[in-house]
Design a protein around this nucleic acid. Structure first.
Lengths: 211, 211
DNA sequence: GTCTATAGTAGGATAGAC
DNA sequence: GTCTATCCTACTATAGAC
């Protein structure tokens, strides 16, 4: 059945959630999936291959769930707020630190690295679209490299996810701190026409010297 | 000898660098340290315990190496520049992704979690001092929770480290993007007395409503 | 496609000689 | 303190019955 392949994908994620990437073996995965251990190799050839497939498939699922929310984000603060809701909800379902686990495992496993890079790119693309849209009329757009900034945001988010695993309260405070920073950017935006024009002028100057 | 305990600490790091946290076994560690495998258990009781000790000891070493540099940082941009130099140099010595590896392993291992939290706190404290010093005269200080912001910065840094493992060019671009953001903050700082006063006023207002 | 059985390997941990 | 030898467990992967 095609059902078994799917169960193995789900089982792989469950095993990573429960035991970390290090403890996700053919046996723990099969147990979590409720299928026979040999089927891992029959359907996917190796544990690594299954993990890579699970990483991509799961990320595709989650991104598509949040895709509409990303589309409705109107400014940086809302993006941060979405990030926070996403963090909270996905964590409750245990879907969060999984990507971070894959990322860690990818450091020493090329096959996993390829899949993880692709999975992260799915999130980054969503953020990129938001930035392009929300920064369209901002001086920031002139100075910022949007895809690069999107990558930085994704990476930072993953870092805070990992941080949460060792210091939950600290991670919560970190999100608060980013809220404060976003609030500051908002204040800059509301400074009034004179200051805004001055800032825009400076930014344009800097942007020129960069080219 | 006390020498053997040290060799095991070094071997543990070497093993994590080479094989990731998942591949750091008593055997690979002992091989990297050039000592007998049984000594892991004689000196540290278990592999986890050795890894925890290695994480703390190594972080203490690295932090003390960079401590003077942290002390000479005068503004946010210099902090970012230090972060970049730190990233480059430590990575060349392979000392970088180690903390990220520990952090990933810590997600499913309480003993490792404790040590990793403490190790990360060593870096965070350094950053906290820098922020407190450099933001002393900035409107930012009123609005920002300095320890929380330091935590966010540490976590984000670790995230970019992990990101580098799957997409080196992307990580490089992420640093560039953060440079651009720091540049923007600098521009805001240089806006001139009128705009600065306006911003300061707004910030004070916001800060009040928060209390 | 799915199962059992098993070969072969690697790892955690300990006992006991030196 | 350090070594060899070893036990036991868990893992990857495959062969072969059904």
């Amino acid at each position: 059945m095609a059902d078994t392949k799917q169960r193995l994908l789900d089982g792989a994620l469950l095993a990573v959630r429960r035991h970390g990437i290090a403890g996700a073996s053919a046996r723990t995965i099969a147990a979590a999936a409720g299928v026979n251990q040999a089927l891992v190799f029959y359907h996917y050839g190796s544990v690594d291959e299954l993990l890579a497939a699970a990483c991509l498939s799961a990320t595709r699922d989650r991104v598509s769930v949040w895709s509409n929310e990303f589309r409705s984000v109107a400014n940086l603060r809302e993006l941060l707020d979405l990030g926070r809701r996403l963090h909270a909800k996905e964590r409750r379902h245990g879907n969060v630190s999984v990507l971070a686990q894959f990322l860690a495992g990818a450091q020493t496993d090329p096959r996993l690295a390829e899949a993880t890079r692709a999975a992260l790119a799915l999130w980054t693309t969503e953020i990129e679209d938001v930035l392009r849209r929300t920064l369209a009329n901002s001086p920031l757009a002139q100075i910022a490299n949007i895809p690069a900034l999107a990558g930085a945001i994704s990476a930072a988010f993953v870092g805070i996810e990992l941080y949460e695993g060792v210091d939950a309260a600290g991670a919560q405070r970190a999100f608060d701190a980013l809220d404060e920073m976003a609030g500051l950017l908002e204040l800059v935006d509301e400074l009034g026409p004179i200051a805004t024009r001055a800032l825009r002028g400076k930014v344009t100057k800097v942007a020129k010297t960069r080219r």
